[in-house]
Design a protein around this nucleic acid. Structure first.
Length: 503
RNA sequence: GGCGACGUGGCCAAGUGGCUAAGGCGAUGGUUUGCAAAACCAUUAUUCAUGGGUUCGAGUCCCAUCGUCGCCUCCA
């Protein structure tokens, strides 16, 4: 099985072959930390964290880097407005970002480099560009001369001369070419800045990504990712300055995720979806969302759409996703309940799974075949341009197949036998596959029964209700159930037992 | 004005040349249940924005039209 990825450079799916066999370097553009992050900022990290896990599953040694841009005009303005330093602002906003990443299960990032920690590398790179005669200084500012850049526009597939009409007039008229971009910006003495060969100033927008990606991943590396909106000018300029500085190819594969849109209902009743962006102000911050919805649901939601498509965010779709995801969790918990074993632990070796087939009845064989075919379908979907949506649909299939198996064999009430082992191993296939994407890694916290006192009280309630049912006092039994439901506790009667969940 | 993406059932969403168009949410009926819940079963797109074309064959390729969104300016 071979992974194919869509490469923005070639506009088609390409066979993935790392620059150095067995090793993969991934760089993803992270946030500019001047305001709280919104849901869109979670898309890249979640996708590339999942991609890294998948590549690791395939045996690659993966290094994943996400940068933090902590100095730029917007930070300076925002910090000024709030009367704090740029450093303080960046520290505050990035702390919130890291918290969110943590909650979302984005745990595979090897480095979160900050631009301000790499001023030396940035200055060195600008000097390299100057030596190659692709950079020029004008009164303390330094620009990249795109006329010296080979193949400028190869990523965004556009010619700069076509762009002028209808676009906003660019300010810096001291530039030789309107499309030249700043590598270094002159700063006022009271602003944040660093000394450089061109005077006191700060880095331009694109240069930090070039400098930092090369530092951690080498001059040529495998995958560069980010949102679609970064293709031009950010990534185009990264390529321009990087390749002109090193005279070597920069990133081999460019992966761009679709943008998150906020779906809202207008007064007229029409649905409307708009890109979520800090400048438009139609933001749902990660912080507020994570307070309302389980982070596991958000991760599942983001991976339920193919990464290149836009995600229309609405409360309805989150709720629908949550319900679907809970169905799978419910199956996994059902297996735990029946088997009294850990369904989230790793799948036994394939041989073990096959041993469960010893009885070799038809339905057992069918389940076994369906589960192993599902594994293949799951992995094939991911191999096809990392189609997480297709892969996740397999988990639903496996879940309902296992439920059907349990019903057919009446495993809920039957004594332990071979079928239960097969059932448990099948469930482990769901969590094993899920884990490749960072999903279904363990029981949902909300399903952990709260404190000990509540658990003991609930035991009493359930016992009282069981007695009432035994005496056919259904009015009392139903009253207990209804009253509990009113405080969000759901009672479910099963063969031989009654369970409760706080919902 | 230039460049690009997208338009699949009530909603979300896979599928990009070939059996009867995945899957989820929702809905309806059924099995089960004391009644529920959960689970399972059945039904829910003769059709993939529209109109042409290529092909033995198209949701899938080409052209046009309409619509939505994005980039060209800070943006994940």
């Amino acid at each position: 099985m071979a992974l194919r990825l869509y490469n923005t450079l070639s506009k088609q799916k390409e066979l993935f072959e790392p620059v150095n066999p067995g090793k993969v370097g991934i760089y993803v553009c992270g946030p500019t930390v001047y305001k709280d992050s919104h849901i869109g900022h979670a898309v890249g990290p979640v996708i590339f964290d999942a991609l890294k896990k998948f590549l690791q599953y395939k045996g690659y040694d993966v290094t994943l880097v996400i940068n933090i841009t902590d100095v730029d005009d917007k930070l300076i303005i925002e910090a000024g407005n709030r009367g704090i330093s740029v450093k303080e602002l960046a520290a505050e906003v990035s702390a919130g970002y890291f918290d969110a990443m943590d909650l979302l299960g984005v745990d595979s990032i090897d480095h979160y480099p900050r631009a301000t920690d790499h001023i030396t590398e940035i200055i060195n790179m600008i000097q390299q560009l100057a030596e190659n005669e692709a950079a020029y200084a004008v009164d303390g500012d330094v620009y990249c001369d795109i006329s010296k850049v080979k193949d400028y526009g190869k990523l965004s597939h556009r010619k700069s001369e076509d762009q002028l009409e209808g676009s906003r007039q660019l300010s810096g008229n001291e530039k030789r070419n309107p499309a030249d971009f700043a590598l270094w910006k002159k700063a006022q003495p009271d602003e944040i800045g660093w000394d450089s060969p061109w005077g006191y100033g700060r880095p331009g927008w694109h240069i930090e990504c070039s400098a930092m990606s090369m530092k951690f991943l080498g001059e040529t590396f495998d995958i560069h990712g980010g949102g679609l909106d970064l293709i031009f000018p950010h990534h185009e300029n990264e390529i321009a300055q990087s390749e002109t500085a090193t005279c070597k190819p920069f990133a081999k594969y460019w992966m761009h995720n679709g943008l998150t849109r906020l779906k809202t209902k207008a007064a007229s009743g029409e649905w409307k979806a708009e890109k979520m962006s800090k400048s438009l102000g139609n933001i749902k911050t990660l912080k507020s969302l994570l307070a309302e919805v389980s982070p596991a649901v958000i991760r599942f939601f983001l991976l339920s759409t193919h990464y290149r498509r836009p995600i229309d965010f609405s409360e309805e779709s989150i709720i629908a996703t949550q319900k679907g995801m809970m169905n799978i969790y419910r199956t996994l918990e059902r297996l735990t309940r029946i088997s009294k074993d850990d369904v989230y632990s790793d799948l036994f070796q394939a041989r073990c799974f096959e041993q469960a087939m010893d009885t070799d009845t038809d339905t057992d064989k069918q389940l076994f075949e369906y589960i192993t075919a599902g594994q293949l379908r799951f992995l094939e979907a991911l191999d096809d341009d990392f189609n997480t949506a297709g892969a996740i649909s397999v988990l639903y299939d496996l879940s309902s197949t296992i439920n059907k198996f349990i019903d057919d064999h009446q495993l809920e009430s039957a004594a332990s036998d071979n079928a239960k082992v097969l059932m448990l191993e099948s469930g482990r296939m769901i969590s094993t596959l899920g884990k490749i994407l960072g999903l279904f890694t363990g029981p949902l916290e909300s399903n952990e029964n709260s404190d000990q006192l509540s658990a003991q009280l609930m035991d009493i309630m359930i016992e009282l209700r069981a007695n009432a049912r035994k005496e056919k006092n259904f009015a009392l039994a139903d009253m207990i159930r209804d009253r509990l439901k009113a405080i969000d506790i759901v009672i479910e009667d099963r063969p031989g037992s009654t369970t409760w969940t706080k919902g």
